[in-house]
């Protein structure tokens, strides 16, 4: 269960945060609440871990083969990288998403894979 397209206009949407760098609310209609934190869960996210949301059931494992390793790693990653970048806002993007406070579906709806050749040219500027 991941990478779901956010649906506009769902009255009671699933608030599970999908994605890793590109965070987005799941947005499918919620059918239940997480047994721990109470957030709304769609059918798929409710079934994933016996009624507990991915955030509450995230395994604290270093085993990359664990199918839900990413769920536990993501919060650690945002905490660590926000501190490496001295950028609390970076962490808050994750935390705020997790509390459902961002507008959903702010993507550029492009087909993707549309890239030109080489960018080593002089039009690059050092940041």
């Amino acid at each position: 269960m991941d990478g779901a397209a956010g649906e506009e206009g769902v009255v009671n949407p699933c608030t599970v945060t999908t994605g890793f760098f590109l965070l987005r609310g799941c947005g499918r209609p919620a059918v239940a609440g997480c047994a721990r934190c109470g957030r709304g869960l769609c059918q798929g996210h409710a079934a994933q871990n016996g009624g507990i949301c991915p955030e509450c059931s995230a395994p604290a494992t270093e085993d990359f083969y664990h199918p839900y390793w990413t769920d536990g790693y993501r919060r650690r990653y945002y905490t660590e990288s926000a501190s490496a970048y001295n950028d609390p806002y970076w962490y808050s993007t994750f935390d705020t998403y997790d509390r459902g406070a961002f507008d959903q579906g702010g993507d550029w709806a492009s087909g993707g894979g549309d890239f030109d050749g080489d960018f080593d040219g002089s039009d690059f500027v050092d940041s």
Binding site: L23, Y77, Y85, D87, T93, T96, A101, F102, D103
Partner: peptide, 17 residues
């Protein structure tokens, strides 16, 4: 790699509502 990649996404981080 992922900490390095963070920079590529900070430039397009969503603006708070």
């Amino acid at each position: 790699i992922l900490h390095l990649s963070a920079e590529a996404f900070r430039w397009t981080a969503p603006q708070a509502r």
